[in-house]
């Protein structure tokens, strides 16, 4: 099945293929295994698009979302992962000495 984003966002398709993931544990795991350059690319590409992207999605309620809207929202949620990495740590995880990501568990079945 071909995945698609809403038509105004088709140029983001390569990023969506990597980052449009439906759950927080999946996005966090993707973040954890990313090279820093991937996070920088996701961050720098999405940051200028975010206001329009959210304004567009905010036109709809969640129950009227189609698959393309959902994929765009999931991409925006992965952008948050990249933003924290780039703005706070300038590396793909955290500096050495932090409590290890592998031992920090993210509960399933939470959220929309």
């Amino acid at each position: 099945m071909i995945q698609r984003l809403p038509s105004a966002y088709v140029d983001l398709e390569p990023l969506a293929a990597e980052w449009s993931l439906p759950t927080e544990p999946q996005r966090a795991q993707r973040h954890q295994m990313a090279r820093y350059a991937e996070l920088e690319l996701l961050y720098s590409t999405l940051l200028p698009r975010m206001p329009a992207l959210l304004d567009d999605l905010n036109q709809k309620t969640f129950d009227t979302y189609d698959d393309a809207d959902r994929r765009l929202l999931w991409l925006a949620l992965s952008f948050v992962e990249a933003a924290v990495a780039v703005e706070r740590f300038q590396c793909s995880d955290m500096p050495p000495g932090a409590f290890e990501a592998e031992r920090f568990h993210i509960g399933e079945k939470v959220g929309v």
Binding site: E24, A28, M50, L54, D55, L57, N58, K60, T61, F62, L73, A76, L77, F79, V80, E81, A83, V84, R88, F89, M94, A98, F104, I106, V112
Partner: peptide
């Protein structure tokens, strides 16, 4: 809405770190 959800996601991801 989506904006609210992205905002909440920020609290969560930032909070994790």
């Amino acid at each position: 809405n989506a904006g609210d959800m992205v905002a909440q996601e920020y609290t969560k991801v930032f909070g994790r770190f």
